Simulated assay, not measured.
Amino acid sequence: MSSRTTSYSDGNVLCSIWIHQFNTIHLTNILKEFDGFLVRRISQSSQLIVLLSRHFMNRNHQHRMTNRRFMGGVDVIVLAAGRSSRLGQPKALVDVDGRPLVSHLIQRLQRINDVEITIVTNNDILADVYLACPATNVVLNPDPEKGRTGSIQCGLSSILERKGRLPNPVLIVPVDRPGWSVDIATRLIASSATSSPVWEGRGGHPLLIAGDDVNTVYLADSNAPLSSLIEREKLDVDFPFLHLNIDTEADLAELFLAAKEDWF
């Protein structure tokens, strides 16, 4: 059974969910195609089920719809598909001042002019991410254990289907590396080469992938580490939080400290 990315729009809400190809529009079959995911989450995800049903009842019309205000903008892929085994809770959903961490990152990215955001996530938190970030494209990575390159490829495939072309450049933002500012992201986007910020000799995130490197990553083995595929130019920054990495419970204290900063 083949897979593809299906995009749909409901008013100002644009969402993209990776689903299996199927031939019926009945909601019962949609639930089966999600292998019971929506059934397990129905109490938390009734809005998502309603939107899915509404979309597939008018599938041909909706599939032709695009968010045209982004056609000339910069694409951003937020990586939120990891299982977070060491942290003990989904990193994207860590509560920061009453909101999920991923929501804070999306709000920060939306302060950059003319960006379109695609979030790649896993089936455990798909509905939660969609409901927390309704103005984004949300894509399911069906096999997140393959690593970061595979998640980036899911995002690139979604953008390719929606726009008919691969994005170039594309900004990659891991949800567990939130130590960056709008200024850093803007400087990366303005560069013409694959690059990432560096503070005190150590690299950080986000990562801008540009030029031929976009095709290289898209066509690579999904298990291949990014470091083996591309070389990054260094963008020197003075930013003490650049190396913030949400990996274990002990890292949350630094995250909550960073959340008090104006840039967060």
Rank of each mutant, 00 (worst) to 15 (best):
N29M: 09
A127E: 15
F56V: 09
S222D: 13
K163R: 15
P90S: 04
E254I: 06
N123W: 11
V74M: 06
L207C: 02
I19S: 08
E231Y: 01
T24W: 10
F241T: 02
R111G: 01
K32R: 15
G11N: 15
A127N: 09
R148K: 13
R108G: 03
G203D: 06
I119Q: 05
P169D: 06
E200R: 15
F256W: 13
D143E: 11
A253D: 11
R59P: 00
L235R: 03
L27Q: 13
E233H: 11
V237W: 10
V182E: 09
L27W: 07
N29W: 12
I112N: 01
A81H: 15
L31K: 06
L27K: 13
R202I: 02
V39G: 03
N67W: 08
L219S: 12
T5E: 10
H243D: 05
R83E: 11
K91V: 15
I230N: 13
N113P: 07
G204S: 10
V139N: 07
S85D: 11
S7F: 13
T149Y: 01
F239R: 10
N223S: 00
L93F: 03
F34W: 02
S3E: 05
G72F: 15
R59D: 13
N245F: 12
R232I: 00
L27T: 15
P167R: 03
N60E: 08
L160Q: 09
E145L: 10
D114P: 01
N58W: 00
I184E: 08
I125P: 00
H104G: 02
C15V: 14
R68Q: 10
L101F: 12
V102F: 06
V173D: 01
D176A: 07
A193K: 14
N29E: 12
R165P: 10
V115W: 03
W18E: 13
E254Y: 06
T66A: 07
N245S: 06
V78T: 08
R111L: 07
W263Y: 09
P169W: 14
I106P: 00
R162L: 14
T149A: 07
S84L: 09
T186F: 05
C15K: 15
T136A: 01
M1F: 00
C133H: 10
D124W: 08
R202N: 06
K32C: 04
K91L: 06
R165F: 11
A92E: 10
I42Y: 02
H20M: 10
D251F: 05
S45D: 14
H243V: 05
L51V: 02
V175L: 01
P240V: 09
R108V: 01
N215G: 12
Q110C: 02
K260L: 11
V94Y: 05
L156T: 11
I49E: 06
G88W: 07
Q153W: 03
L160M: 09
T28D: 11
S195V: 06
F239P: 07
L252E: 00
G201C: 10
L244G: 03
I17H: 04
